[in-house]
Nucleic acid binder design. Structure first.
Lengths: 126, 126
DNA sequence: CTAAGTGTACTATCAGTGTTAGTACACTTA
DNA sequence: TAAGTGTACTAACACTGATAGTACACTTAG
């Protein structure tokens, strides 16, 4: 479900944060459902519990999860987070478009490529 | 012309590399024109000459510039680099689209937003 | 009540990397 | 000849991510 990439230059704890953000916002993890425990997830991913804790602390600080002492961490039901997360994608898109313009990639070429990527992997309906 | 962001988590030398890649590929810096000297650019940006050298070494390794002993570094006239640089933008776009799909951003919303970003800052023709 | 599992906090240490500092040498050119 | 150029090298520093180990309070199942 999670899966981390040790080659990636992005820190492990950030990968975990982003992965859970997506899972929560997209509804895969339902509100009030329990998160994996710090120790169990650390075992599963073969990394240090402190690293998981760092990720969970960030997720809590951002409102994605809430902790219950002695019981565990649970998914928060904050609706606004989805918009926020989508906005960050659009912010990245804006930067990428700026790069594209600098490199003189035509608008249509860029836009149509995006559309193609969107359609890739979808079911073919005959 | 260059301008670096010390707040950015991307290393200084990489910022310099990417900036020059864009300037070269977009034609702002013409083939065989002289690059700023290692020491002068270091002075201008108030950073260490070693950092500039690291950036130049990368640019040379990638074929963007070529060195002439005792004279300086010069812009290479490699045509293939433009395509390569554009491809990297498309690769980033592919990843971003994947994120967008996970967050259930509709294809049209994504694509139209890209188009809007492209049109922003362009001259209004009345 | 007890034991196991939970979050949380803390210190210490290690490893990698980006950056700086300083020096040195060969080359080209005015 | 002197100044400017690239290039190479070592050393040191700072920051950050990650690990290791310990400790304590809490909840829950037995």
């Amino acid at each position: 479900m999670i899966g981390i990439d040790l080659q990636n230059r992005k820190p492990i704890y950030e990968q975990i944060v982003e992965r859970f953000q997506t899972l929560i916002v997209s509804g895969v993890l339902e509100p009030d459902s329990q998160m994996p425990s710090v120790r169990s997830l650390a075992m599963e991913l073969s990394i240090n519990p402190n690293t998981i804790q760092k990720a969970y602390a960030a997720l809590e600080q951002e409102g994605y999860i809430y902790p219950v002492k002695g019981r565990g961490n649970f998914v928060s039901g904050n609706e606004g987070l989805k918009q926020k997360k989508q906005d960050s994608v659009f912010a990245s898109l804006k930067e990428l478009v700026a790069k594209g313009k600098e490199l003189k990639i035509p608008c249509n070429a860029f836009v149509e490529r995006a559309r193609t990527f969107y359609q890739e992997g979808e079911e073919q309906r005959v």
